[in-house]
Design a protein around this nucleic acid. Structure first.
Length: 568
RNA sequence: GUCUCAGUAGCUCAGUAGGAUAGAGCAACAGUUUCCUAAACUGUAGGUCGGAGGUUCGAAUCCUCUCUGGGACGCCA
């Protein structure tokens, strides 16, 4: 239980008892707000809605209410404008919060809201034979963070890397390889060579449209198990996975399943049969579709005129497979914004098929990584490689360490944590749906609201604890403090559980990132203002506070998929 | 054309189940280290919240219209 909730509940109950039954404590709790200005206290009740009911000026109501509110939890109740503002008893509140954080440590903020239900998360899903681009980073880190937040919220996350290892693109690639490729070149530098073949295919296809037909033909052969096609496909796939694994290792991300699109090849007929059985399959221009016009959606294409399957068919098969094998209570798809229509159609088809669990599937869209204000296109070879960006970021971080802390023992490790952290945090700190204009300069900025800033805050706090010989298992029984300087840090700590809840409710890791920025800012101000290690009767309590900060910052970073170096 | 997402300080963004004086970071300028890591902190400057109506005691937040930009819209994924 979040300690702040006690204060909120107390205030709401006291108010409720004074309003002639016009508002319940629960209703009041919802409208209670945290004032923006610290001089307005810690919690405020706006009286405007009561003004109508009682036909009195809100200021007058507030004044009357304030006289009747008193509790040992509050040190002061004031009236300002139409608000009743209360100030918490800092000693009591601080003690409650610190004791809780220090005893729960990394468990602080955990909830059982998910009641152990399985949440599948379709994420990352890079395309085989294409480089791992900055675009895929978003799905990967957002999905990973949502999984961590879900676990903390009582779900059982199940991360699925739905590899793009099937589709017409492979027909195109095989065509291009047979025309212009060389085994030697591909072996030497697989991804780069395959990408340039893919790009060349699209360049040539502009003047030679029959290439597209060849591509489709080769894909058809692949679907029919043609030996040559299968051999090439397996080769391309293996080489790609090697590269992807290198990146996932760097990011510290693992999957519970890497069943890609090809995995569902033998599960397609059944889905199509099922759709047909329900009488949903309609023929249209030689293709098979499910009509969705009653929902004002374009029809969902199930089978092409040449009999080959499509993306939607595979996703339907995958949805069915996941429900049957994992029995999810929620199924998330962390996939770009531009595919919203596809997921609307997917859910609509499942709904029409009579699966009541269709509405437990959720598309978690995110904005695009833009280059010069435009979408990046693999076909035109306009991609930015994640691995190169990570390498630059790590190099930059190593350079900083060399300048600022040359005696650091595990330099390489820390450079990796900070370099990777900078890139991950940059991606997660803003609202998911915002487009991001790619800027290496922004990404490698290590000052201000950045990953390194948070990690630095953590390292500084750890340094103090080391010098103060703080034992983190020790929880002092009392803290003889007035808590004026530390009050903002303490309230920031108390807000962590709410940030986790918000992040879960909105499937939005940026809620955690923003929280961790706020907490770090408050701590850094405190650090600049108060000499924590200076001998004083307050020192043990201050160390306890610093210890609590390290625990929450570290846990916040963990939920974002980032590491926290104890020195940097 | 239809649908959809967005427009807040020079730049990047918070703030939206309506609430008090719209907040940060970067960039600019001025400071802070004999003292716990200056990847930090303090201060100055910077705004008709795209525009116009409307609802309301109260609107960046809700409704309508409008302008601008991104994206999607059947045989790619």
């Amino acid at each position: 239980m979040n300690p702040m909730i006690n204060f909120k509940k107390e205030f709401a109950q006291l108010l409720s008892a004074q309003v002639d039954g016009q508002l319940t404590a629960e209703q009041i709790e919802i409208v209670l707000e945290k004032p923006k200005q610290p001089e307005h206290g810690d919690l405020a009740f706006p009286c405007f809605s009561l003004a109508k009911i009682f036909r009195q000026a809100p200021q007058k109501i507030a004044a009357e209410l304030s006289e009747k509110i008193s509790s040992p939890l509050f040190e002061k109740v004031e009236v300002a404008g139409g608000y009743v503002n209360v100030f918490f008893n800092k000693e009591t509140a601080a003690l409650d919060i610190l004791k809780q954080v220090l005893s729960e440590q990394g468990e602080f903020g955990r909830s059982d809201a998910g009641t152990g239900g399985v949440m599948t998360i379709d994420m990352s899903s890079p395309n085989i034979a294409k480089p791992f681009s900055m675009g895929h980073l978003r799905s990967t880190v957002i999905g990973n963070s949502i999984a961590l937040i879900a676990e903390k919220s009582g779900f059982k996350p199940f991360k699925i890397n739905h590899l793009g290892d099937w589709g017409t693109q492979f027909g195109k690639l095989i065509t291009a390889y047979k025309l212009w490729g060389s085994e030697e070149k591909v072996s030497q530098n697989p991804i780069k060579e395959l990408l340039s073949l893919y790009v060349k295919f699209h360049e040539e296809a502009i003047n030679n449209p029959s290439l597209e037909d060849d591509g489709r033909l080769w894909f058809k052969k692949l679907e029919n198990g043609n030996e040559e096609a299968m051999e090439l496909w397996t080769w391309f796939r293996d080489e790609s996975l090697k590269e992807f694994t290198r990146i996932y290792d760097l990011l510290g991300i693992e999957f519970d399943s890497s069943a890609g699109e090809a995995f569902y090849n033998d599960k397609m007929d059944r889905v199509i049969d099922l759709i047909e059985e329900k009488g949903l399959l309609v023929e249209s221009d030689d293709a098979k579709v499910v009509d969705l016009s009653d929902l004002e959606l374009p029809p969902c294409l199930i089978k092409k005129s040449d009999g080959a399957t499509l993306y939607a068919t595979r996703d339907l098969a995958a949805a069915l497979y996941r429900k049957e094998n994992y029995n999810f209570v929620q199924s998330l798809y962390v996939v770009g914004n531009e595919q919203s229509l596809h997921f609307k159609q997917l859910i609509a088809v499942l709904d029409k098929m009579g699966y009541e669990w269709a509405n437990t599937m959720k598309h978690i869209p995110f904005g695009m990584m833009l280059k010069d204000g435009k979408k990046m296109s693999t076909r035109k070879g306009k991609v930015i490689l994640l691995e190169e960006v990570l390498a630059e970021s790590i190099a930059m971080s190593a350079k900083n360490i060399q300048e600022k802390n040359p005696n650091l023992t595990n330099k390489d490790d820390v450079a990796r944590m900070v370099g990777v952290g900078a890139v991950v945090f940059h991606d997660l700190k803003n609202y998911r749906l915002n487009d991001i204009e790619f800027s290496l300069e922004d990404m490698l900025r290590f000052e201000g609201e950045t990953g390194p800033y948070i990690q630095y805050t953590y390292a500084r706090a750890c340094s103090i604890l080391r010098k103060g010989n703080w034992d983190k298992s020790e929880i002092p029984a009392e803290f003889p403090l007035s808590w004026t300087e530390e009050w903002k840090v303490i309230t920031a700590l108390a807000e962590f559980p709410e940030a986790v809840k918000r992040a879960m409710d909105k499937y939005d890791p940026s809620q955690i990132a923003k929280y961790v920025i706020d907490l770090s800012r408050e701590f850094n101000k405190y650090y600049a203002e108060v000499k924590i290690l200076e001998p004083s009767e307050k020192k043990p309590a201050r160390l306890a506070l610093v210890s609590a900060v390290t625990m929450v910052v570290k846990e916040g970073l963990r939920l974002l998929g980032m590491e926290a170096p104890e020195e940097m």
